[in-house]
Design a protein around this nucleic acid. Structure first.
Lengths: 343, 343
DNA sequence: AATAGTTTTGCAAACGTTTTCATAAACGTC
DNA sequence: GACGTTTATGAAAACGTTTGCAAAACTATT
């Protein structure tokens, strides 16, 4: 009969229970040194007894930071972004931030929508993947004066501070490696490049090298396929049914490369004896697979970690300078590319 | 000189600009049918001009839902959780929810901390992976009366509503399949099972079958390894150096199975001729790999999707009944397990 | 032109906090 | 024991919204 009020308790309830004013309770949280240890103990007991949990929403409307950071990715379900998200999350956690995560499925309209929603939640900062964003998105960020950072691609001319790698260079490196091994007949396996600056840059980089140092890539040696092993295996298998065949395949990333390797295996081609395959990314597992995948290493964990820390510091005003960070990349040679005779 | 106030605009600014009261602006958002179309247009123009974005924190303290759902996973950077997170995210998005995501690295203490933080942010619901949680976590959920759901494991006795598969059964199925093929000498590859009910259930399921239908598994045929291809490859390679060798390896999930396959390849063993390997999970890529991985299919996307929808409906009160959903599982036979002679 | 409805709007209280300012209590000093 | 400090507390305003209620402005009806 006395157990009315099963209500979730607020600061008022705590104050009452501890027989102090709400100001004191608030202070016990925010400036504990200003409240008498004995009082603090009483408040603590009341909090525990009532199961009180502070309401950050109520704090936030005082201009206090919300303690959240928004991260927008094309998709979560991809080895590389999963790794970046994890690293980013781990990096901002020590600063006390909670992560809001959303994906847009490579649709920049949706990205804008997500961004707006994050802003409604008054995130303290936002991180985006890559540099391709709608002008509305850029305007929003500028207008709301919210700390923002771009992850994964690097461009010294970027409007946003960015932490990433030079993807054009990655494409060049991969192509150059194949050429150096003596390959001249090279096929390309890439994802759609609309709304995806990373893939576009890589492809352009690769093309630029190939155009001058190898044979022009015929259209039927270029396969476009979504980021999925299944789709890639299927598409590349179709491509490998024709003849003549390229001696090497340059893949836009490691997932595509793995798909391509499986396609080759199924087509009865030995890698690297019959066909060489190079990826970009160096995902988890690329090193361990048999044969080990030759690829261009992009340090995903490092990038996510750096980006998280950089943004957190920007938000907490620990640092104010807006930096552009370019991570070093290089070819890691394993066993999926063979040297051509005479090279 | 007149461009003072570069301030982020609030509802008051909008009201002023549109020459209406703030109540009207608020209403234009929440009950548009109650405001004159002409006025609405004016407000709309003001909003656009000022770049106004609603403050959800301010709404939230009125008892209005925050529009967020918290998802706690052991790790984001794992094929299976990435897939679940994506599906879950896609499922709650149509309901207008934004996702708060955090990982605890298989540490239930940290899980509790994350949970608290989510509650501070007044998430409208929480989703956890599995059924192993600290009693503090359970108490917290109960006390705060927050809709919660458990993903990935299924137990009809679970306190929380759960959407998942019966992991014990998965372990049984895998073991049974191996036994049916005539294997009697079977090794086990599992992750640490503390704080991980999924792995524990699978292992128990497998053991129970093996104990009665196969030879008792000697200790040196059991390898414990973290969820990583690299670690698994290394650990299994060490194990395969001994003799006698088991004729089959039962792996706690597909990542471990892939690691085991690479280990076998490196050790000069052919799969499945020299050694059979079965996984659990059927991750993306397991079908496509060469040879295709025989495994027990756990429908990750379906589970994430179902869980997301279920929780969203629970939060929005569209449904109130707390359901336990068990997803069907079955062995999918591909090419990594061979039939023993005479079977 | 007066009345009764209906639609549209504004006022003010409320939400759960933080923070400024003022006051009370305790302490030390001479 | 009167005074100035220091320490601890409380009252009340503020934050950016929503919403119940009442007033104002229209419309339709006579």
């Amino acid at each position: 009969m006395s157990d009315t009020k099963p209500k979730i308790s607020d600061i008022v309830a705590v104050a009452k229970a501890a027989k102090v004013s709400i100001s004191t309770v608030s202070r016990a949280y925010n400036h504990p040194e200003l409240v008498n240890p004995a009082t603090r103990k009483r408040i603590d007991a009341a909090v525990r007894r009532l199961g009180y949990i502070r309401n950050r929403a109520a704090q936030t409307i005082h201009g206090i930071r919300s303690g959240t950071i928004g991260l927008v990715v094309p998709t979560i379900d991809h080895a590389i972004f999963a790794e970046v998200i994890q690293a980013f999350s781990d990096a901002v956690e020590p600063y006390g931030f909670t992560l809001l995560v959303a994906s847009h499925g490579y649709d920049l309209e949706r990205e804008y929508g997500v961004l707006r929603k994050f802003l409604e939640h008054r995130v303290d900062g936002v991180a985006l993947i890559g540099l391709d964003h709608s002008v509305e998105s850029y305007n929003l960020i500028q207008r709301q004066e919210i700390p923002a950072i771009s992850i994964w691609n690097y461009d010294k001319a970027s409007i946003l501070p960015c932490v990433g790698a030079d993807n054009r260079h990655a494409g060049e490196l991969a192509a150059r490696h194949l050429v150096d091994l003596g390959h001249r007949d090279i096929g390309l396996v890439f994802p759609p490049i609309t709304d995806n600056d990373r893939a576009r840059d890589r492809k352009e980089g690769a093309m630029s090298v190939l155009d001058t140092l190898a044979r022009a890539v015929p259209q039927n040696w270029i396969v476009e396929t979504p980021y999925s092993i299944a789709d890639t295996k299927e598409a590349v298998t179709r491509m490998l049914a024709q003849s003549p065949l390229p001696t090497a395949l340059l893949c836009g990333n490691d997932v595509l490369a793995v798909g391509a390797i499986y396609a080759a295996m199924r087509s009865g081609l030995k890698v690297p004896e019959d066909i060489s395959i190079i990826g970009i990314g160096d995902f988890k597992g690329s090193r361990e697979m048999e044969p080990g995948l030759t690829t261009v290493r992009l340090p995903a964990r490092t990038i996510g970690d750096l980006a998280g820390r950089e943004l957190a510091r920007l938000v907490t005003k620990e640092s104010t300078e807006i930096q552009h960070n370019s991570c070093d990349i290089s070819v890691v040679v394993r066993n999926t590319c063979r040297r051509m005779q005479g090279f």
